[in-house]
């Protein structure tokens, strides 16, 4: 999965919790909480949406890395990049 694919999956997950957000207007390096007022419930629903789309399990200790768009994509790149070739999760 390319970085662009991951970004697109992240934006889909974000729109599932903040449907009125315009991804083009979001600053990629600023916390989504600080731009869209996402709260803990939104964050957990965002993580559930990422899990459904990418079959990725994200431990609580890593939640802070998901706060901004760029950081989230980089985290998922690292996380999914560690999957053995051809292997499922």
């Amino acid at each position: 999965m390319t970085r662009d694919d991951l970004r697109s999956a992240v934006i889909d997950a974000l729109l599932s919790v903040a449907p009125e957000a315009d991804p083009a207007r979001l600053k990629p390096d600023v916390s989504l909480r600080d731009q869209l007022d996402l709260d803990s419930m939104d964050l957990l629903n965002f993580i559930i949406a990422l899990h459904r789309a990418l079959q990725v399990d994200i431990p609580e200790a890593d939640y802070r890395r998901l706060m901004a768009l760029d950081g989230c994509v980089t985290y998922l790149e690292e996380k999914l990049g560690s999957t053995p070739a051809g292997g499922g999760r």
Binding site: E20, A21, D22, R25, L26, K27, V30, D34, Q35, L36, D37
Partner: peptide
Amino acid sequence: RRDRFVFPRHQRQ
């Protein structure tokens, strides 16, 4: 910080 919110209702809140 207030000005970083995209939507006016979040800025007001």
